[in-house]
């Protein structure tokens, strides 16, 4: 495994702090940029994200052209608050209403492709407590300043040596270290260089996002990396150190469900790629147990593993964005394939 990717494609947010330069590069290349915040009951944090992004990256530096909130059906005041601070707010179910309706973060991201206008789309989780505009500009920065990069992903720990002998451990959360990293190590060792493949903050070109399928739930981060890597290679991917991120912690059962979905996504992809040959269809139920009044009771969650097709295959999308010609097939390469693929 070559370490050149790690050296060449890993950035720090401070590398992109010159916002005037980013804006001028955006204007020179006549690009538009959308920020999308997928939400489900995020009334405690959504306003802060919108306010800071709007102030710093729209009013003061015209880097973003729109802020779009895609909501999965919040029961709190998320949508009202987001709208009151000037975001364009959509209920996911109301987008492409003729299609079957699903709930999930991946579904929101996929549908955002239909309602946003940007050539570049930045996705940020809406639960970041210490939100700062670097979360957006630092992800857009590599894409604007390095034309070969098409997809930039956030990480938060600093993988640097402190002094001569002290090294701070780096990496992701529990699901990353217990599920994704072992799987990457087994099948795609070069992808282990992506420190936090599950981070919810990334940016990419529309021309990339519209050509890959989106799992409707937690599997979306995994699938994006695997699919982009497969279609265009590792060299189009960058990662950016955003330093500290504070967000709500999930309990182990919630992480278990997340791990289930990610494994489901991962196994299906490596089967399609011919790495493994599953002799039997996988089950689609995550089974956990609770102790209720001295009795163990199964807590079964059906997780369908449903995926949306590449958006470019959706007729309404092709019509809206005036895309002509036949929809590309799933296997067709839309961009030159890299030697890493």
């Amino acid at each position: 495994m070559s370490s050149s990717w790690l050296e060449n494609n890993t950035f720090h947010f401070a590398d992109f702090a010159d916002l005037d330069r980013l804006v001028s590069e955006k204007e020179r290349r006549e690009l538009t940029i959308s920020l999308c915040l997928p939400t489900l009951n995020e009334e405690k944090t959504i306003a802060k994200e919108i306010i800071i992004m709007k102030s710093e990256l729209m009013t003061r530096y015209p880097l973003l052209d729109e802020i779009v909130v895609i909501d999965s059906g919040s029961t709190d005041n998320t949508m009202e608050i987001a709208a009151s601070f000037g975001a364009d707010v959509y209920e996911a179910d109301q987008i492409l209403p003729s299609l079957e309706k699903f709930k999930g973060k991946g579904e929101n991201l996929w549908k955002s492709l239909f309602v946003t206008k940007g050539d570049i789309i930045v996705y940020l989780d809406a639960d970041i407590k210490n939100i700062h505009h670097r979360f957006a500009y630092a992800l857009v920065g590599p894409l604007l300043l390095h034309e070969h990069l098409k997809y930039a992903k956030a990480f938060y720990d600093r993988p640097i040596a402190i002094g001569k002998s002290k090294v701070r451990p780096t990496g992701g959360g529990r699901v990353t270290e217990l599920v994704i990293r072992p799987m990457f190590s087994l099948f795609f060792p070069e992808l282990t260089q992506i420190f936090q493949p599950l981070s919810g903050e990334y940016a990419g070109y529309r021309e990339v996002f519209e050509k890959v399928p989106f799992p409707i739930g937690y599997g979306v981060e995994t699938s994006l990396i695997l699919d982009i890597h497969e279609k265009w290679g590792l060299d189009v991917i960058a990662q950016v150190d955003l330093e500290k991120r504070v967000h709500k912690n999930q309990n182990i059962k919630a992480l278990g469900k997340m791990a289930f979905v990610i494994l489901d996504t991962f196994l299906k992809r490596i089967e399609n790629l011919g790495f493994i040959d599953l002799k039997k269809k996988m089950y689609n139920e995550m089974i956990q147990y609770n102790l209720v009044k001295n009795e163990y009771k199964a807590d079964i969650l059906q997780i369908g593993g449903i995926e949306r097709p590449p958006m470019i295959e959706i007729p309404e999308y092709r019509h809206k964005f005036s895309i002509t010609g036949k929809p590309p097939g799933r296997q067709k390469q839309a961009m030159p394939e890299s030697s890493d693929a």
Binding site: I51, S55, T59, N130
Partner: peptide
């Protein structure tokens, strides 16, 4: 009309 900038300053410094 520039409430976002004022609130941003309160947040970025006050936090």
């Amino acid at each position: 009309a520039i409430k976002e900038t004022i609130l941003t300053n309160i947040v970025l410094i006050g936090q």
